[in-house]
Design a protein around this nucleic acid. Sequence first.
DNA 1: AACATTCGGATTGTTGACAATCCTAAAACT
DNA 2: AGTTTTAGGATTGTCAACAATCCGAATGTT
Lengths: 233, 233
Amino acid sequence: MADTNTIKRLTRRTLSGQIAEEIRQAILSGVFPLGSQLNEMELAEKFGVSRGPVREALQRLIQEALLVSEPHRGVFVPELNDRDLSDIFFVREAIEGSAIRRVMKSEALPEVSLTLKRLVVRMDEAARAEDWPLVADLDMEFHRELVDAAGSSRLSRMYATVQAETKLCLLMLRGGYRGSAALVEEHRRLADIIASGNVAAAVDELPKHFGDPVRIMHKANAARERGSSSEAA
Amino acid sequence: MADTNTIKRLTRRTLSGQIAEEIRQAILSGVFPLGSQLNEMELAEKFGVSRGPVREALQRLIQEALLVSEPHRGVFVPELNDRDLSDIFFVREAIEGSAIRRVMKSEALPEVSLTLKRLVVRMDEAARAEDWPLVADLDMEFHRELVDAAGSSRLSRMYATVQAETKLCLLMLRGGYRGSAALVEEHRRLADIIASGNVAAAVDELPKHFGDPVRIMHKANAARERGSSSEAA
DNA sequence: AACATTCGGATTGTTGACAATCCTAAAACT
DNA sequence: AGTTTTAGGATTGTCAACAATCCGAATGTT
């Protein structure tokens, strides 16, 4: 047997696990509006189960920062403010930066570069077809691929949760996701720099890459909060 | 009213939260040996509560990677192998590296440096008194302080979980925590470099700082596994 | 009219019991 | 004797009911 590294994934699907996955998808799809409350009993009978598994599923999503719990009040879809937004992208930069550094030092760099460039091609096709949801998905996949290539299970897991929060951010500007073809170009640029082997340049590119979305989202967030008088932080 | 120091403990302690904290401390104190199983019913009656809150507490700790769950089998204190060990310190390097970069760019650097140097002083005192547990605690605090200084709640939270795993690592070499005064010197060195403002030097110092513990633990781990014929990874 | 108080509805937090699953080990078979 | 089968025990997974807590509206007071 050549590879024994496949550790026999007996993913024993537990009920609460399935429910968590279901609710997670629902949140990230915008089924539950930001700030809305999730009723345990309601979810329970919607899934045809008791409140126990639902509670456990919610607990898990709380740990993933996809929900926030106010004791004796309920669990809510969080509303992200500017601080959160900056923080999320700061952490993304931290994680992806480390991933880039490690990948570019490894001998798997050519392979990873190829994978990334293929993703850019698909992203380009999607952009030409103006399939913006697909573009967004490929954007996510691009960065996830990059982080996973580092081969650190912990880094990947951490990144997964931050990426989920990023999706939450995208929900804030519903449909307003900039469909500019510039996005494709940015990723192509990033992929090229990574392939080039210039570590410093690659790491420097990340803030530029994230700069735009952060600014755009901040703007959208400010516009959204302009209507409701908010608390000063 | 002159004193507003009562910071209004809004921290509504939920029962499961308290239990989680209790179990967490127990795990990190080595009350539960590595690889041992945690019985829900047993814990429940030990805490004088039902299995519900205990289950939720365990769920939380599982998410923190302080426990692993095998469906329909039970939850166990994880046994960390060499891969885990390397991974943990890789992630620590990633997080602390980003924290250092941000802190050293901020104007709070002098203040942070001072705090770190004070910690080194305390660590030195503890080392002279040969109070190694305290030295270990101060080691943890040093790095946590550094990360917290970055002002990113998400980075801090992620680091907290990795640091908990680090404590798990220390449990592997029970009591064998090297009490060398070199540890103090290393931290002093790191604090000095950070204070100096030389970002590149500071970031370069991290791998050196982590190099020793990783090697030592690998050695200890190998020695520990020498007795039991283990599966080849 | 403005403020404090109390009551009601709703939701979460907790409990004890029941069902499903897994591991161990004894027993039956070749 | 060695291997398969099958019961036993134990533990987790799930459920429905009970208790505690919180929010908001209605009521009473100044």
